[in-house]
Design a protein around this nucleic acid. Structure first.
Lengths: 178, 178
DNA sequence: GCTAGCATGTAAACGGTTACATGATTAG
DNA sequence: CTAATCATGTAACCGTTTACATGCTAGC
């Protein structure tokens, strides 16, 4: 997901690693902090893979380390699109991962491809699964004895409802636009 | 978090690893699948740490590998309580981690300690932070240009509202019970 | 005969956390 | 003068993923 965020932000414009860190922190940092020990190795991996290029900046004044301008290459942009159009199953089911996909979904040029992702998430949320159900039949809130498990159920249902509503609305908008 | 789930489920009753896997899969498996390559090493670490004990079961019939009964030790129960009463900051801020804490929160004997966890989460959700805000002032939904970023905002707000409501209600119940 | 479920594990590769390492500039 | 911000990186450790490895029982 970190890799995706790097590709996604660099698709908007070239940036220094430091700026990238701020952008990513703004997006997901409130939930889990981003460490330099994760960011810089991730950048190096992307560079080795040929997805980004780095160019040292001419020193404006005598700063410590010279800043590197990071640019997305053509294959990098292709990789971003691939990740967005063929996401792994976990990236659909895991809420945090799905949100990261959403954040960059506009980089997919085809609205139909965008819609496919939303539909997959909607299908997942609509399917009877997880701790909402015991077997095939939905759990009744009152049947859950533990107060906190009951809370989990109440919150998960509310979240799911809000998300399904937005997904349904947006899918309708996307198909109308065609 | 896997470690916590193992401690939490074994606190209810002794179990085989296989049963543990089913329980954990029911709790969080819909979001991210649990692999054996994560479970068995985690069990071994807990055994080495003295938090669980394993006892091979007498073979009822000629099954393949002999089943191991896993039991939580006294220090294991203490460790579970410690994890629940002194969670790391990430475990409060990350939704999935917090939900795992909630699932086992009843194992904390003191309602006041339970309330402390809920309050920490409520404080986090109430504080101005993350992509809800640009700087100190809350973002207006209409100001977000990207359709999908706007969706993220809408859904995050709905989720946050539902969670804050449940937290507030439950905190009131907990203090009334005293 | 085959698939699904029961039941346990190991090993390589990968990625993230934590701590370390350095050094300049700017605002209080 | 001190803290925050700018700015980049490395190394040890730890846990997860993915793939491999084995073998029994029950139902179709």
């Amino acid at each position: 997901m970190l890799t995706l965020a790097i590709l996604g932000f660099l698709a908007e414009r070239p940036m220094h690693a430091y700026e990238l860190r701020k952008q990513i922190s703004e997006l997901t940092g409130h939930t889990r902090p981003l460490s330099d020990g994760a960011l810089y190795p991730a950048i190096n991996r992307l560079e080795k893979a040929g997805h980004i290029e780095r160019r040292p900046e001419a020193p404006t004044s005598g700063r410590g380390p010279t800043r590197q301008v990071l640019t997305l290459t053509a294959t990098g942009r292709a990789e971003l699109r691939r990740r967005l159009s063929e996401p792994a199953e976990v990236e659909i089911t895991d809420g945090a991962s799905f949100f990261t996909l959403l954040a960059f979904l506009s980089h997919l040029p085809e609205p139909a491809d965008q819609a496919r992702l939303l539909q997959r998430r909607l299908d997942f949320l609509t399917a009877p699964a997880g701790f909402f159900y015991s077997g095939d039949t939905p759990l009744r809130i009152a049947d859950v004895e533990d107060r906190y498990r009951r809370g989990m159920l109440v919150m998960a249902r509310a979240t799911s409802r809000a998300e399904r509503q937005w997904l349904t609305e947006t899918l309708a908008e996307l198909t109308n636009c065609d």
